[in-house]
Simulated scan of single mutants.
Amino acid sequence: MKRYPFNEITTMQYICLNSGIQMSVFFLAMPRILAEKAGTDGWIALIIGWIITVAASLVVIQVMKKHPDGTLFDLLTRYLGKWTARVTASLFVLYLFYYAYTGIVQAVLITKAWLLPQTSASTVMLLLLIPTYVITGNGLRILARYAELVFIISCWIPVVYLLPLKDAHWLNLLPLLKEGWKPVFSAVPTTFFSYIGFATTFILYPFLKNKQKASSIIMISDTLTMFGYLFITLICFVYYSPDEIQKYNEPMVNILESIEFKFIERMEILFIAFFLLIFSLAWIPAMYLGVYSTSWLLGKQDHRNHFRILWLFLAVGTFFFMPTFNQSDRMNELLRKIGFGIEYVFPSCLLIYLWMHNRFKWRKNL
Rank of each mutant, 00 (worst) to 15 (best):
C236M: 11
F237Y: 11
F237E: 03
F237W: 08
V238P: 06
V238I: 12
V238Q: 10
Y239S: 04
Y239L: 04
Y239N: 07
Y239V: 11
S241L: 06
S241Q: 13
P242I: 08
D243S: 09
D243F: 05
E244N: 06
I245Q: 13
Q246A: 08
Q246G: 03
Q246N: 11
Q246K: 15
K247M: 10
K247Y: 07
K247H: 12
K247G: 02
Y248S: 05
Y248V: 00
N249M: 14
N249R: 15
N249G: 05
P251D: 07
M252R: 10
M252G: 08
M252T: 15
V253Y: 07
N254F: 02
N254V: 04
I255F: 09
I255V: 12
L256A: 07
L256P: 02
L256M: 14
I259V: 10
I259R: 09
E260A: 06
F261Q: 02
K262R: 13
K262N: 10
K262T: 09
K262F: 00
F263G: 06
I264P: 01
I264F: 11
I264E: 08
E265W: 06
R266G: 05
R266Q: 12
R266K: 15
M267Q: 03
E268R: 15
I269Q: 12
I269C: 04
L270W: 12
L270K: 09
F271L: 15
F271T: 14
F271P: 08
I272S: 07
A273K: 14
A273G: 13
A273C: 13
F275S: 01
L276W: 11
L277E: 02
L277F: 08
I278L: 06
I278S: 01
F279E: 01
F279Y: 04
F279A: 01
S280I: 01
S280A: 09
S280H: 02
S280M: 09
L281P: 05
L281M: 15
L281I: 12
L281S: 12
A282G: 11
A282T: 13
A282Q: 11
W283K: 10
I284M: 13
P285G: 05
P285Q: 09
P285Y: 02
A286P: 03
A286G: 07
M287W: 03
Y288M: 01
Y288V: 00
Y288K: 06
Y288L: 06
L289E: 05
V291A: 04
V291G: 00
Y292P: 00
Y292V: 02
S293C: 08
S293W: 05
T294W: 01
S295R: 12
S295T: 10
S295A: 15
W296E: 14
L297F: 03
L297S: 02
L298N: 09
L298Y: 12
G299R: 14
G299P: 07
G299L: 08
Q301H: 11
Q301R: 15
D302T: 10
D302P: 01
D302Q: 13
R304D: 01
R304E: 00
N305D: 07
N305K: 15
N305Q: 12
H306L: 08
H306M: 11
H306E: 05
H306D: 04
H306I: 08
F307V: 02
F307G: 00
F307Q: 03
F307S: 00
R308Q: 07
R308S: 01
R308L: 06
I309N: 12
I309V: 15
I309Q: 13
W311H: 06
W311L: 11
W311A: 01
W311N: 06
L312W: 13
L312D: 03
L312T: 09
